[in-house]
Simulated scan of single mutants.
Amino acid sequence: MKSHQPKQLKTQLFSCGFFRHCGQTVLSPTATGPTPPPLPLTQTHTSTTCESSTSSSSNSATTSQSFTQWRFSIPTPTSTPNTPPLPPPPPLPPFLSTIPNLQELFHVSELQSTTDLNAALNLLERSLVPNPPQDQPPCPPNLMRALIRNLRESKPATKILFALCLSEANRRVAVEAGAVGAVVESAPELEGAPAERALAALELMCTVPEGAEEVRAHALAVPVMVTVMGKTGARGKEYAIGVLAVIYGGDMGDMQTAPPEEVARAVELALQGDCSARGKRKGAQLLKTLQHLSHPHSHDTS
Rank of each mutant, 00 (worst) to 15 (best):
N170Y: 04
P138E: 12
L102M: 05
K159Q: 15
A182H: 06
R171F: 08
F162G: 04
L143R: 02
A179P: 09
L161M: 12
L105S: 04
N118K: 15
R172L: 13
P140G: 06
E125C: 13
L166C: 11
L147P: 08
P138F: 09
P137Y: 07
R171T: 12
R172T: 15
A169T: 13
A179G: 08
Q103E: 11
P133V: 08
N150D: 12
L128W: 04
D116K: 12
Q136V: 07
E110M: 07
P140F: 05
V108Y: 02
A179N: 09
E125F: 12
S127K: 07
N101V: 03
I160G: 00
L105I: 03
L124V: 02
K159C: 07
A120R: 01
N122A: 14
P140N: 06
E104T: 06
T115K: 09
L123V: 03
N118G: 15
A120D: 10
L166D: 09
A163V: 08
Q112T: 11
C165M: 04
E153N: 11
N131G: 12
R171S: 11
L111V: 00
R149G: 10
E168I: 09
L151N: 05
D135T: 08
D116M: 05
P132N: 10
S127N: 10
L143A: 05
V175Y: 00
T115G: 05
D135E: 15
E104S: 05
G181A: 15
D135I: 06
A169I: 12
F162L: 13
V180T: 02
T114F: 09
V108N: 00
L117H: 15
A146W: 08
L161C: 07
S154Y: 15
I160F: 05
Q112H: 07
M144T: 03
N131Q: 13
V180Y: 09
R145S: 15
K159G: 05
A157H: 05
P133R: 07
A163W: 06
K155H: 13
R171V: 05
H107V: 06
L147D: 05
D116T: 13
A119Y: 11
E176W: 10
N118P: 14
I148Y: 04
S109K: 00
